[in-house]
């Protein structure tokens, strides 16, 4: 899961980057509104965590631009302003959720999971595919009821493929999901992770679309 974090406070931004990383997210952190606006135009993110009081461009403007472009990426506003008017303005500008500082990291990640779920249009917090069940909150995968031991990258890869089941995800998208801008991706690491997933969960789970990327087919049931 690739998250764009826009927060101008250096210590909070750094903490969120690490904290969300611990929760399995790949975090790209920007400290001003204008850079965030530019990044959102050029790249794909699964989630956006947006502060409102930003230098160079207010968070609400970033949000407005985003929605005007028709981008539906889930946005969670993170701000110190807690007046009802501020919340209403934020939600009306197209935010999907609103969290007031100071917040709990657990609550933030829970809300991010809920946003992903809603965005994917599935009510069940568990991602199921045949005999495979992925629990995003617990970061656990079971196969036929038996826990499967996955690395963090393998888990993220599986989650994004399951969430986009039936859609072919390009290599670049998957690599960004894994590394963000910090990516020191070796050229074949993606293949290595896919190989591990196939070994642990079954060879026919992930199919390769040559020259494009990978896909998990939508279960027929």
């Amino acid at each position: 899961m690739r998250v764009l974090l826009v927060e101008d406070d250096p210590i909070l931004g750094q903490g969120l980057k690490v904290g969300l990383g611990q929760a399995g997210y790949t975090v790209d952190w920007l400290e001003d509104g204008a850079s965030a606006d530019a990044a959102l135009q050029d790249e794909t993110f699964d989630l956006v965590v947006l502060d409102l009081g930003l230098p160079r461009m207010p968070g609400l403007d970033v949000l407005n631009h985003l929605r005007r472009r028709g981008d539906e990426v889930p946005v969670l506003i993170l701000t110190a302003r807690d007046a009802v008017g501020d919340r209403v303005a934020g939600l009306d500008a197209g935010a999907d959720d609103y969290l007031v500082k100071p917040f709990d990291l657990d609550e933030l990640t829970a809300r991010l999971r809920a946003l992903q779920r809603r965005h994917a249009g599935r009510p069940d917090p568990l991602l199921e595919h045949g005999e495979i069940v992925l629990d995003p909150a617990a970061r656990r995968v079971t196969l036929r009821g038996e826990p499967v031991n996955l690395s963090q990258s393998e888990f993220s890869l599986l989650q994004v493929l399951l969430e986009n089941a039936g859609r072919v995800l390009p290599r670049t998208r998957l690599e960004e999901t894994l590394y963000g801008w910090d990516g020191e991706a070796e050229s074949n690491s993606l293949e290595v992770f896919i190989h591990h997933l196939r070994k642990k969960l079954g060879a026919d789970l992930i199919r390769t679309v040559r020259g494009v990327g990978y896909v998990i087919e939508r279960p027929t049931s």
């Binding site: 406070d9 210590i11 909070l12 903490g15 110190a80 500082k101 100071p102 917040f103």
Partner: peptide
């Protein structure tokens, strides 16, 4: 609030 969130987040991290 912002410095406090930073403290809390870093503590949780």
């Amino acid at each position: 609030r912002t410095p406090l969130s930073a403290l809390k987040t870093q503590a949780q991290v």
